[in-house]
Design a protein around this nucleic acid. Structure first.
Lengths: 163, 163
DNA sequence: CAGGAAAGCTTAGGACCCTAAATAAACAGA
DNA sequence: TCTGTTTATTTAGGGTCCTAAGCTTTCCTG
């Protein structure tokens, strides 16, 4: 009844271990970030929208289409619709019809939204550092490079799905 | 209107880059794994339950409590309840009252569930390898070590949440 | 040997992600 | 120009995760 040498359970490969650890660590990250964002009354996904709108503003774009947000955040358009609905309901963003394209809607920060983003930005770098300071700068760069490589592979695999 | 040297946007730190890349890469992973599991009619979370039950069986445990699953999968008990509900509805697992503790319920694979797990296990290592083969074995081990360290830090941070 | 604390599970409600399909507008080629 | 395709958004429905709160059973301490 004890494990035998031929039992695959006894020798997980490096691929299996890193794969599992990746999923595990991400779960923990969500556990930490959710209460952090909750302090500001938002969720992680909502922060993603707000931050992207803020960046766009700083680059001279007064707003973004929902499709742009979808592409930047790597989520599907229906997911963006839902997040935008909730942010609009609490007055952090506004939806406006595009002047040039009757199909699309632009989404932009309200003054209230802008202020919230700036409030979060005051502490956000410290929060990110708090998490990543488990690693040295060199190791952070190493991790980044490894994840970029895995990400590129995943992008290829994700593409090949719609057969 | 152009970026100035003092604009934080111009110099993301290694911490910020690796943090962002981690979230980004995980999103891509889900995008790839979801359709993969869908081929078997299950979700990633459901696979997590089935695989844990299968492992428990191989170690001589005929079933697991919902709380055990919650701890192994790093998710809260109510989430396990939902997943178990759906797996039970399609006949892949069964819930049974514990003989020794009136509070808890044991969950176990049905024959149908066991067969599904074995079917998935036939191709799963290859799928994991397909993703992780973006890295050499050495790099996979490096990634694992880095993620373990970040995970340990996150576990500490997650603990300190319930002030 | 009570009565309160802790443990295990579930329900309720909110936010998120996805796919599939419905609109509506823009585009493009015959 | 007219029709067929593509693009942008939304709706509908399923599955996951969370917190808060309720119920039952067990544990433990006075």
């Amino acid at each position: 009844m004890l494990r035998t040498p031929t039992n695959p359970r006894s020798t997980p490969t490096a691929a299996e271990r890193s794969f599992r650890q990746f999923i595990r660590t991400f779960g923990l990250l969500e556990r930490v970030m959710q209460p952090y964002f909750a302090r500001f009354g938002i969720s992680g996904a909502q922060w993603g929208v707000l931050r992207n709108l803020h960046r766009a503003e700083q680059e001279g774009q007064p707003g973004l289409r929902l499709t742009d947000l979808s592409r930047r955040m790597l989520i599907r358009p229906p997911s963006v619709t839902g997040i935008a609905d909730r942010l609009e309901k609490v007055g952090l963003i506004v939806r406006r019809a595009s002047a040039t394209d009757g199909r699309s809607k632009h989404v932009a920060l309200t003054e209230k939204g802008r202020q919230l983003v700036e409030q979060v930005l005051k502490v956000h770098p410290a929060q990110v550092a708090r998490v990543m300071s488990a690693l040295s700068i060199d190791e952070q760069e190493q991790l980044d490079r490894l994840l970029v490589r895995v990400g590129e592979r995943l992008a290829v695999l994700a593409d090949g799905i719609g057969d």
